[in-house]
Amino acid sequence: MPKRRKCLPCLSGLALLAGALLVAPVSAAPKRVMSLNLCTDQLAMTLAGPDQLVSVSFLAREPGLSMLHEEARSYPANHGLAEEVFLENPDLVVTGTYSLHNTTALLKRLGFHVEEFSFAQTLETIPGEVRRMGALIGQEKRAQAIADDFTRELETIAAGQCGKDPTMIAYDQNGIASGRGTLADSVMQAAGFANLAADMGVIGVAPFPLEQVIAAHPDVISIGAPQKAPTLGEFVTRHPAIGALPDTRIGAFVPEASLSCGIPSVIEAVRALAALRTEIAPCHGNAAQ
């Protein structure tokens, strides 16, 4: 098997190279970081030092998608194009695995250091992703502090709940519900709600028939706030049948855009839902123990 033997040195070479790449960000923090993805935009803005971030994607400025849309206005915007990256020539490019496969592949071929962040995001993945971003851009201490605060606050919120979990569904445009494995699901659970869609076997974000929402009669139906530009899909969440449910709370209970990305600010959504839960199922004296 001469072929295999020939390959051994090149394999070990690859391993060396990989090792060098892994070590590199720790030894020298990149001075010019560029983010091409809505979620990495927000992680990077949370952690980066002054002037470290060259540009973020244009989506980061959208109030309906980005929690940090105001901060994003102080950075130049990119449209995730390889040309833009080439002109800026950053030390590090951060992006999502879900978006822009072709751009990512092209940038890697051109020799840019590209780091991808997974699209699968829940509350559990946030501290790890924060630390990873911190390590990549040389802000380990800040990242560790933010991740610790985040975990601590989640524990505090969990400790403040008592009684049976009220049921809830996150119902969105066109009758779409968030099931198991979604950020919304983990936020609902952390705030002490039973996610109706997950309990009925929905995995990921999937259509959920309006009739079944009515039949299941959840305690809370969380819908999106109305957008400026109208769509017909919004009328599904405002269907008279939902309004006719007695004793069900319906409304936009989480801050706008707070469920679109796994970033530390998602804690605001958990806080908002936890407050709602306390209102629905308050702890009376000894019930708390």
């Binding site: 309006l210 009739e211 009669h217 049948a241």
Partner: peptide, 12 residues
């Protein structure tokens, strides 16, 4: 039942 009434009158 309440749910059946809503489903029949408001949806179907």
């Amino acid at each position: 039942s309440e749910a059946a009434a809503i489903i029949m009158r408001e949806i179907r």
